[in-house]
Simulated assay, not measured.
Amino acid sequence: RGMKIIDLYENVYSQLKGVNATLDGIDEAIGSEVEREYVKAEAYGLRGFYYYLLVNLYGEPYHYNKTSLGVPLKLTAGLVENGLVRNTVEEVYVQIVKDLKVSAELFEKNPKRVGNYRLNVTSVYILLSRVYLYMEQWENAVKAAGRAIETAEGLTNYTSISSSTFYMPTYAHSEVEWRYGNGQLKYGYVPSQELLSKYGDNDCRKKFWFNVGGKTTKKTPDYAEGMGPTNTLRISEAYLNRAEAYAQMDKTNEALADLNDLRRCRITGYEDISIENVTDLLDEVRWERRLELCYDEQRWFDLRRYGMPSISHKYKAKKVDSWLMFTLKEKDPLYTIPFSTTMIMNNNRLEQNVSAYEPERKGI
């Protein structure tokens, strides 16, 4: 079956065009003030989320080089004839934080809503805690994650679920705050043995998220809810974001409390652990992050902010081909992806990333 190759840069800016048009005209829209505030809150939240995606794909990691070029900030829907230059990574992050904070303030003014594939107050605070974590603003990350947890319905306790049929992307789980995205990873992706080996025998995630053949069922939709988006933003991330920030602040007791709270809802018969060494605790939290957020499209961004370590993967295009090992070296330029030729042609002021000039990588 043929597949259309999507230019993510073009696709996300297309979504931004709709968001900006909404914000440009919402104050004159027909409807109650409450409804206008909800729409504005959703639009600002989405704009922050979209720029978070763009700057982490096409800009260098914030902590590594925040003065480097990020992506162009386009904050209105009006057409621009002569193209746009790239703002710095720091400038884009400042705008992301600004948009998410405005979104949160607007959501806070009105009762919380959950469902219909739309952002809410908790989901925006989760995103804000994630962005602060990337910026290494630990106290702000703790505060945002804490507010997310305060406004949430709570973690879903996997250990009390007896059904053999499990759907991750459903609002029936108390921890699911936002369903979104096209669900590109629904079928056919097999987790690595390294990843699977990290789940213990009593870890319910291993039972619920991966079928007998090893493929992921984490994004398989609940057909009773219809074929909606299959990505999820869940309150479990807020616990991990806060635990990591606490560990970075040398607050081991607080970090352990969040880590243990999450694990008790995932592992049957779990007994709380105690770790005194901050480095070991941080490693433990980050491993838990990999287990909990697998297939949530965050691992690549996490590796970037962890220092862009060298990574290797086996790949073959056809079954009859031999496996080849491809490697990204530490701090590889290709940790920041190049813009497509089409986008460069469409915006003659768009400066290309150096990764575009890297030699083609050969497998061995």
Rank of each mutant, 00 (worst) to 15 (best):
F326D: 07
G226R: 00
K198T: 05
D332R: 06
E175T: 10
S162H: 12
K319Y: 09
N346I: 00
P111F: 13
F107C: 07
L195Q: 13
A21D: 14
F49M: 11
K329Q: 13
T67N: 15
A145G: 13
F339A: 10
G48I: 01
I161P: 08
C265E: 01
Y167W: 13
R264W: 04
A245I: 09
N87T: 06
V354I: 13
T170H: 14
S197H: 05
G78C: 04
W209E: 01
A247N: 04
Y125F: 15
M168N: 14
M345A: 11
V19S: 09
L57I: 12
Y117V: 07
N241A: 08
L334S: 13
L128Y: 01
T122V: 15
P221Q: 10
N253D: 15
D24E: 12
T232G: 02
N65P: 08
G25E: 11
V114G: 06
R86S: 09
L324R: 15
F49Y: 15
T88G: 09
V114C: 06
N120R: 08
W287E: 14
G200W: 03
D261M: 02
E297P: 02
D7E: 07
E81H: 07
N241T: 13
I273S: 06
A77W: 05
S68T: 04
R130W: 04
R36I: 10
A257V: 00
Y38C: 07
K198R: 13
R299K: 11
G83A: 10
N348V: 12
G146A: 01
Y134H: 12
A224K: 09
P191I: 07
Y180R: 07
R1F: 05
F326P: 05
W138P: 00
Y315T: 00
E81F: 13
T268G: 00
T165W: 06
A255C: 02
G200T: 15
